[in-house]
Design a protein around this nucleic acid. Structure first.
Lengths: 208, 208
DNA sequence: CACGATATGGGACGTTGTTCCGTTTTGTCA
DNA sequence: TGACAAAACGGAACAACGTCCCATATCGTG
């Protein structure tokens, strides 16, 4: 097929070979730099490691968010796919939810600076937010619904709010004695339908 | 008293009049700018609003943290002093804890960017961390102890960890539908000694 | 192999934090 | 009151960073 013709699949010209090579080099370099210096590492550092100019990075990944998404796409996908399996394998939906949250915490915590970036409302990170919301919120919703249907937790918890909160917990850093997994589970425990579920604590909820 | 002699109180020369004036102007300007542009507003902006040079701000407040502490000292003190009163006024220690947490959340949330800064481990913010820890952690400890003694919550929750977690929640931003107060209370609810308190959920706690 | 489209890279620009240094202000003492 | 030294000042200077421009090099095709 001639490259002057439009690519049958995408309706656009296929990328040039060097462009593909550079994109690959950038992904590899970014993955390495993200580990050593965090996801907010200077653009120049990533470009240098990949052996390309700074402009090249912007051409392939217009925003830093695009680069982050590209680097972690596989892991996020696995996280999303794990939910239905957990729902099958676990004793109760609540257990599945709890374990999925654990996985989510593990993922976020091991990516230096990712939690902070997830919280930022800098428009530069909008693509990252969109991706996380599109891919993970429905999955979390599914887990929440199952737990509600089983009568284990109170209904009405928005999955986006819950995940944002857990993201916030994870941004707490890895100080000794700070255990994001335990705290996230505290949150999920607080959701349980029990003698003192939220909404049935009028005194506690009155303003000071 | 001659200024050539040492100041009786502090053993140091009293500050010059213009220095005091500038310090006051800086505090006022910073308070205003923190509201309009957040606590991470550019140094130049604060200096400009105070009508001083950029170096002056560093002379009076070596780190940004010092400036933030100076601006919010009063409110933090009030927060610290509120705890014993809440303990007296509330029906139970847990209610007091919950209400104090509400106050803490309200304080943090209304200061644009403060939560994010509280999470940052940039050494520049160490003085801020130290101040918050010194002033608020013991107070939180007191509330937790009271609730433990009353048998309302499980023992062993470190106050620093709890406050850091809540700080993280508050950094979630003010998106519609994101309610830090509710989430913080979810956390405190999860602490309750109930049929499914943390530590009694072996299945939930097993790793995926 | 030549040519046009594509992609490149390094430097220019604007913004920020931080520090240096010549100048100004202040308080004191004669 | 007036001079002088210490204290404080302000703005320029520097470095680090994100972002964008444009002259140049490279690739794929005819």
């Amino acid at each position: 097929m001639s490259a002057t013709e439009r690519d049958a699949e995408s309706g656009t010209r296929p990328k040039r070979a060097d462009a593909r090579r550079n994109q690959e080099a950038l992904l590899e370099a970014a993955a390495a730099v993200f580990i050593s210096s965090g996801v907010e590492a200077p653009v120049r550092e990533i470009a240098a490691k990949a052996g390309v100019g700074t402009a090249t990075i912007y051409r392939h990944f217009p925003t830093r968010a695009d680069l982050i998404v590209a680097v972690y796409r596989h892991q996020v996908e696995r996280l999303a796919e794990a939910a239905p399996e957990l729902l099958v394998d676990s004793a109760t939906p609540h257990a599945a939810l709890s374990r999925w949250i654990d996985s989510f915490v593990d993922f976020v915590v091991t990516k230096q600076g990712l939690a902070a970036v997830l919280q930022s409302d800098d428009p530069c990170y909008d693509p990252l937010h969109s991706y996380f919301v599109d891919r993970l919120v429905p999955v979390c919703q599914q887990l929440l619904d199952a737990a509600v249907d089983a009568g284990e937790i109170v209904p009405g918890q928005a999955p986006y709010e819950l995940m944002r909160a857990i993201g916030g917990l994870c941004a707490g850093g890895d100080h000794p004695g700070y255990d994001p997994r335990r705290l996230a589970n505290l949150l999920v425990t607080g959701l349980r339908r029990s003698s003192d579920a939220p909404g049935t604590l009028p005194e506690t909820w009155s303003r000071p």
